[in-house]
């Protein structure tokens, strides 16, 4: 499903950008294998300057592997990677891309201020230390040892460090994992305030609500591929669709293609499973113009839709798996 071209909410920010500017992120056919495991399996992604993109997917979807590649921390197995029109390593060296990692990356015996000062000394040119401390909301704890900071404070420290080179692209890998509600809110307030200045932001998350609240565009990944790509509103609309199930011996997916509002058709034996935004139209079609029987309409919860979209096998298989796991 590619809804990128029709997505209105992020198109304006693309137009603001001067013509010919290189995409902030351009991944094409990206693969990353670890032995026989295909962590990333043919992933395509283009992020234009100024976009705030959520990289959404369950654990093990390939989010971190993709981020490692686009930051130059690991080499892709195949495909091409271009960050701000150059290689990841060159983009890092130029201070064009920086990242807030999930955990680690801090020295416990340093203070907050010293950590930022040290990081600043590694770049040829940076924003002043006090400016980034203030912008990350940690100016008041500059003298505190990192070991004594809460998870949320440490995360805002990582954010301050990432702001130092004034990067074009800011990458956040599951930035709020392990934070309490208050810390999460303060962290996102700082990010949102910063993104308002026109910075490109790509953040990985497995929280649907977080993607919904803070991104212009959601890229849903599963099994190392992009399975959905659209605005928050569009993905939300997808999530609130309904499923129509019916028994129809000899059914082919093409039989339902003409029905309005059909998003996806899956056939398993004599059973057809239709995901649709207009379930009434599908039911009417099935009952009046087809030999189908046993028609069931079920509404899909937010989480159901997320699981359905991000599971590489068929929807039927997903349901079975979920049921089995619940039964244990």
């Amino acid at each position: 499903m590619d809804t990128t071209s029709s997505a209105p909410s992020f198109t304006p920010s693309v137009e603001v950008v001067a013509a010919g500017a290189a995409p902030a992120v351009h991944l094409s056919g990206l693969t990353k294998h670890f032995g026989s495991v295909r962590a990333v399996d043919g992933l395509d992604l283009v992020v234009q300057p100024g976009e705030v993109v959520a990289f959404l997917g369950p654990n093990g979807a390939g989010k971190t592997s993709t981020i490692d590649v686009l930051l130059g921390l690991s080499q892709p197995t195949g495909g091409t990677v271009s960050i701000c029109g150059t290689t990841p390593r060159a983009a890092v060296a130029n201070g064009w891309v920086s990242a807030v990692m999930q955990t680690g990356g801090l020295l416990k015996d340093l203070t907050v201020g010293e950590t930022v000062e040290l990081t600043a000394s590694l770049f040829p040119r940076t924003q002043p230390v006090d400016v980034v401390l203030r912008r990350a909301g940690i100016a008041d704890i500059a003298d505190r040892r990192v070991a004594k900071c809460s998870g949320g404070q440490q995360q805002r420290l990582r954010f301050a460090m990432a702001l130092l080179p004034d990067p074009r692209l800011l990458v956040l890998d599951e930035p709020t994992t392990g934070m309490d509600v208050e810390g999460r809110r303060a962290f996102w307030a700082a990010i949102r305030d910063d993104a308002g200045r026109g910075r490109t932001v790509l953040f990985a998350t497995h929280y649907l609500e977080e993607a919904d609240a803070y991104a212009d565009r959601i890229v849903l990944v599963a099994g190392g591929r992009v399975v959905a790509d659209g605005t928050a509103a569009e993905v939300k609309a997808l999530s609130t669709g309904r499923t129509v199930r019916a028994t129809w011996p000899g059914v082919r997916p093409e039989d339902l293609a003409a029905v309005p509002g059909v998003d996806d058709v899956q056939v398993t034996g004599d059973t057809v499973l239709v995901r649709a935004s207009d379930s009434d139209a599908v039911a009417r079609f099935l009952l009046t113009r087809s030999p189908a029987r046993d028609v069931e309409i079920t509404s899909r919860g937010l989480e159901d839709a997320f699981i359905a979209l991000t599971t590489p096998t068929t929807t039927t298989a997903t349901t079975t798996t979920t049921t089995t796991e619940d039964a244990r």
Binding site: A120, L122, R125
Partner: peptide, 25 residues
């Protein structure tokens, strides 16, 4: 896009082999 961002004059650090700030800290 970078033109919309403020880039205040920061500190210039020479790319010497030794980094005095890192050493001190």
């Amino acid at each position: 896009m970078t033109t919309t961002l403020q880039r205040p004059a920061g500190t210039e650090v020479p790319r010497a082999v030794l980094n005095p700030t890192y050493l001190r800290l």
